[in-house]
Amino acid sequence: MTDAPLHHEFQVVSTAEYVPFARRETAKVLSGWGLDAETVATACLIVTELVTNVVQHAAVLSPTAAVHLGIDAAALTLVVADAHPFKPKALPTAHDLGGRGLHLVKALVAEFHGSHEVTADETSGGKRIVIRLPLALLPA
């Protein structure tokens, strides 16, 4: 892995057929950056869940989703942005039909002692879900 910050951005159409593309692109890029298999798998699962949420809940106002991958000396950053203005929230229980994606993302972020936030995306009028996983705590 290089010491210089690295970034990669791509867009996906907000339909179920593009969710596997987001996962494959994330895996290809992060593996190419030299991250270990466990971190790549975790990042892929997070991106998959977030893009799936766009498909299921935001596609009506957001025909595409933007995915940003970044790494610097401190953290791996995963961002999924869409043009829907409403902030996502996990359903009251993780046992309802649906609603488990955000619970899973939060659990994975907590396991890696990371952070997550939802911010306004000024460009689209929508939102950005930003996940940061500290490199110091990622598997070697």
Rank of each mutant, 00 (worst) to 15 (best):
I131G: 07
A81P: 06
F10I: 03
L6M: 10
L6Y: 03
A4D: 13
A94T: 15
A58Y: 12
H8A: 07
I46F: 10
L78D: 04
A75P: 02
V40Y: 01
A59M: 08
A136Q: 01
K89M: 15
K127C: 08
H113Y: 01
E49L: 14
L69G: 05
K28H: 15
S115E: 03
G99K: 08
R23F: 13
P5C: 08
I71S: 07
V80L: 05
D36F: 00
I131H: 05
D3F: 14
A65V: 13
L108Y: 08
A120M: 11
I46Y: 10
E122N: 00
L61T: 12
T2W: 01
L50I: 11
D3E: 11
H8K: 09
T26Q: 02
P20F: 14
W33D: 03
L45W: 01
A74K: 01
K28D: 12
L133W: 04
M1E: 04
R100S: 11
S62R: 15
A37N: 01
L108D: 05
V40H: 02
H57P: 10
L30C: 09
R24S: 02
D3H: 13
H84R: 08
K127A: 09
F10V: 01
T77C: 09
G114A: 02
H103I: 02
K127I: 14
E9H: 13
T15A: 09
D36M: 00
H113K: 03
H116A: 12
C44R: 13
A59K: 12
A90V: 06
T2Y: 00
T42A: 07
T93I: 12
L104T: 13
L108P: 03
E122K: 00
L108S: 10
V105F: 03
T15Y: 04
A83E: 08
T26D: 02
V47R: 06
L104A: 11
A22C: 06
H95Q: 05
A73P: 02
V60F: 07
L104P: 05
